[in-house]
Structure formats: structure tokens, C-alpha cells
Design a protein around this nucleic acid. Structure first.
Lengths: 191, 191
DNA sequence: CCCGGATGCTAGCAGTGCTAGACATGCTTG
DNA sequence: CAAGCATGTCTAGCACTGCTAGCATCCGGG
């Protein structure tokens, strides 16, 4: 491949990531309803149609943002789990890391778990970062427990429910600590 | 008040409810993204601006739909709880009723719990139907348990998480039964 | 009978996601 | 080295959104 087109491809890749990053920044500072193709194009200093040479449409852009988010979340969860001394405290640590991620990057979390997306979950073509996130929850349980995937799903669902309901003001923001306590202590043990 | 304006007011109230019902039907059949002020106006056979003489804006219309939904959900939950023989099975019955409501009326559920709304939750000016829904969960626990409100919040959050994650394909639609089993059996008891 | 106020309409604004077609730039080939 | 092709980008515009200003029209009260 000639070096010129090599450089072009590099620049194109750079611009690709620039679009994703700009969308994410814009969403984090002003919310997703402020992320429009016009404002996004203005930010990356190109016209709107170039966005469509990188992504099928706006949905694909938020999906790309979400994918980056899943990679970060997986790293966070893994770090929290491995820093814990035992499987018991590990679940608690992972839950805390999950809630911290959601509250520190609400727009990113929204792109990952709330906004309509065509990312495939729980199937063969599920991207690796998604699966990695879920696996961190599963890994907190005894491998001998054949229902551990089910328990992980329930824990994850509960955390997600707590997150979105408190983010939208549907449950009080206080008592988060106590809710996680309740959740972990009662769901962790294998009866 | 003269009978003529009395009739007018009655007609106006009828049209008011007609807007709400049309919005709900449209959402149930084609999803909320298909509910536009134009289509809504066409359905009630008036022009768009009349919508704004009834509601501040589109958000207020979905809030009205949601409010109707809360009344129905509260009735469902109450019926399920009172049909149960004891507090233990009651929680399970209420959870089942909740999930059935969510899966049978997905758009209505979305208006109530997912779409951005200015309905006040968990505060002084919370509308009665909202509070009634939450209270049905609380009533499943022993009044002597001073943490029963917290437990109710967690149960509700988990149900909500299960609902939205499976509705958006983020967890498999199967195993719902088992998830609720897990949730109820481990969170119900008062240790 | 005529007037005034309420009522609902037409038309339009500013914004959205997305795309067709023009244009220029630069690479490849005769 | 020049001609022409292909790639890349932009301008302009489409069909749609929520929402509103201002104008008819109609009906009840004096």
C-alpha cells in the first residue's frame, strides 16, 4: 500500500475516533438530546455528510460511544474484583464500581443501557467488551453454582434498576449504600 | 353556570380524554416514536394547536398517559396482593402482576418508567396513584420491619431492571420465572 | 340585529436526521 | 508529462419534528 493512502487511512481513523469522542463529550456536558449531527459536524470541523461516511447514522455513533464505554466498564469491574480479597467482598466491590461508573458518567451509561441500540446482547455476535462486563459479575460466584449466571443477571438487573430509577428521580438518591447492602447480602449466599 | 357552557365544558373534557387515549393507542400499536402531534391531531380530528390548549406540550400528554397507567397498575397490584392468602405468597403475586403489566402494555410502561417526565416521585406532591403502586410493594412486608420501605425499593428496582433489560434484548427473555423466584425467595425473608 | 369574545384553523418557524448532486482535489494511466 | 478518472467533501435541500402567531369564524348576550 502506498504511503500516501496509508496516511489517509490513518487520518481517517483519527477522525473516526474524533467523532466518537466529540459525541461523548457533548453528551456528557449537555445530554444526549443536545447531540445533533449538525453540532457534531461543527465540533469535528467537517460537514454533516462526512459523519455518514463513517457511520450508518446517528444510532451507529451512539453505539460506538457505548462500545467504548463497555470496554471501560469491564476494566473498572475487573479492577474492583481483583482488588478484593475473596469472592464475598468481591461482589460488593464490583457492585460499587458499577454504581460509581453509572453516576460518574451518566450519559455514557445511558448510551450503553438505555438508549435504543442495535448492539447484540447475550448472543453469538455479542461484542467482547459486553460479554466481559457480564462475566465480571458471574466470576464473583462459586463456579460450582450452576445457577450463578442467573444470579448474576438478577444482580445486574437490580443494579440497573436502582441506577435508572434514582437517576430519573423515581427513587430518592439517598440510601444507595443501604440498597446495595441489602442486595449483596441477600443474593450473594448460595443456599 | 348556563347549561350551554356546561355542555361545552363536558365536550372539552371528553376531547381531553380522547387525546390521552389516542396517544396511548398509537403508542401501543406503533411505539412512542410514532406519536407525533400531527398524527395525534389527525386522530382526534382537530388541528395541532388544540392539543396545546389542553396540555403544555407533548411531554404533558405522555405524562397524562402515564398517570392513567399508574392508576391501572395500582389496581392490578392491589388485586394480586389481596387475592393471595398470606404475606409470603403476596409478594410473589405482586411481582408477577407487575411483570405481566409491563409485558402486556410495554408502551404504557415506558411512559410511566422510562421516558423523561416531570411527574414527581417520592415527594410531597407525588400523585396518589404513584404512591399507591409503591405502597402495594411495601404492604407485602411485615409492618414491624422498619426497613420494609427500603426492601420494597430494591424489589421494585430489580423488577424494573429485569423488565427493561429484557424488553431491549439485553438479557434473554427466557428464565423470567426463575429470576423472580430468586428475587422473591431471597429478599422476602426478614433476617 | 349587532357586537365581542372565545375557539379552532392555516401557515409558518426553527430545528431534526439524512441525502442527492455539484465541485474540487489529487492519483493513476496512456 | 498531460488527460481523465476517482475519491473525497461541501452546499443545498427533503421530509419530518414540536410548537406558535395571527387570522377567520361562529355563537351568546345586550
Amino acid at each position: 500500500m502506498p504511503p500516501v493512502s496509508e496516511r489517509r487511512e490513518r487520518e481517517r481513523a483519527h477522525r473516526h475516533q474524533m467523532i466518537i469522542d466529540s459525541a461523548r463529550e457533548l453528551a456528557e456536558t449537555e445530554g444526549w438530546e443536545a447531540v445533533t449531527t449538525r453540532r457534531l459536524a461543527e465540533r469535528v470541523e467537517y460537514s454533516q455528510p462526512v459523519l455518514y461516511s463513517h457511520f450508518h447514522g446517528k444510532d451507529a455513533i451512539v453505539a460506538a460511544v457505548a462500545l467504548d464505554g463497555f470496554a471501560e466498564l469491564a476494566a473498572d469491574l475487573r479492577g474492583a474484583r481483583q482488588a478484593a480479597p475473596a469472592p464475598g467482598p468481591a461482589l460488593r466491590a464490583v457492585c460499587d464500581a458499577y454504581l460509581r461508573f453509572a453516576s460518574e458518567r451518566p450519559a455514557l451509561y445511558q448510551a450503553m443501557f438505555v438508549l435504543p441500540t442495535d448492539l447484540r446482547f447475550a448472543s453469538a455476535e455479542t461484542p467482547a467488551p459486553l460479554r466481559a462486563c457480564f462475566d465480571e459479575f458471574v466470576a464473583c460466584f462459586d463456579p460450582g453454582n450452576e445457577r450463578r449466571e442467573l444470579v448474576a443477571e438478577v444482580v445486574w438487573s437490580a443494579l440497573h434498576g436502582i441506577t435508572v430509577l434514582s437517576a430519573s428521580g423515581r427513587i430518592p438518591a439517598a440510601w444507595q449504600e443501604e440498597r446495595v447492602d441489602l442486595l449483596v447480602t441477600r443474593l450473594a449466599r448460595t443456599p
